[in-house]
Design a protein around this nucleic acid. Structure first.
Lengths: 125, 125
DNA sequence: CGGCTGATTAGAGATTCGTCTAATCAAGCT
DNA sequence: AGCTTGATTAGACGAATCTCTAATCAGCCG
């Protein structure tokens, strides 16, 4: 049972975000607020095996390798993904806990009253 | 403390976003990827009655009125909020359907099999 | 070793963004 | 009408962002 207890703050519609919470979430959101990075994140996240080689990513865009590298760094700095070099290639994977923070910020809005113990609590990080 | 069991993936991790879907979501995310706008959105969204007067918003920040107005416009242009003038004051409220799009992007795909059809996939383009 | 492929870092150029001041629009006074 | 208060628009300016080319780092193999 995926009990999502992460999240740094209450969902957006429950109570006003504190200044610091807003700043923290904004940096996370900024990392994702780019078409290329969004696609990168979804490619990495949806890749079978949970890992993706950079070499597979660069080919999917009409951008130079350094540019892709830059976007990956932004995502990694934000904590949304992590990476490791294995021999010649570098592999990236998603960090679900951090991605879940983003979802927790917005979801309770639309969800039909979470029927279960899916407590998206206000546990701080 | 926060045992992060989160399923394997968020919707973003279900399949790679198309280029157009990524672009659409990115514009939405960009609108929210700012501390001030995040706080504005949460203030409006959590306000009792569902509406908030601009006059209540400007006082909460150390920014000039035009700046707040600018941020509200960004949110409104993105479709996340809507507004109406009633007499002297202008009132803003949240548009839940659009905010939900953001949540749907990152929220874990609900519990394993038990719950079943928690359709989160309204990310149609 | 020397060279080759994959990936990142460094730095530059153009665009976008956040904030401000000044000016304008809207509604309600006196 | 003319003044006052609330809100937005217009324009300017510095900071941040995205992309590129050139250079550098890390493994592999002839």
């Amino acid at each position: 049972m995926a009990d999502v207890t992460i999240a740094c703050c209450a969902p957006i519609a429950r109570e006003p975000l504190s200044e610091s919470a807003a700043a923290e979430m904004a940096t996370l959101l900024k990392a994702v607020a780019d078409p290329v990075r969004l696609r990168l994140l979804s490619m990495i996240g949806s890749h079978a095996g949970g890992e993706t080689c950079v070499c597979d990513l660069t080919d999917a865009f009409n951008l130079t390798a350094p540019t892709i590298s830059h976007h990956l760094k932004v995502l990694r700095t934000a904590g949304l993904i992590d990476s490791e070099r294995r021999g010649t290639w570098v592999y990236y994977w998603i960090v679900p806990a951090v991605v879940a923070k983003l979802g927790a910020l917005f979801t309770p809005l639309a969800e039909p009253a979470s029927a279960g113990p899916v407590d998206v609590g206000l546990v701080t990080v």
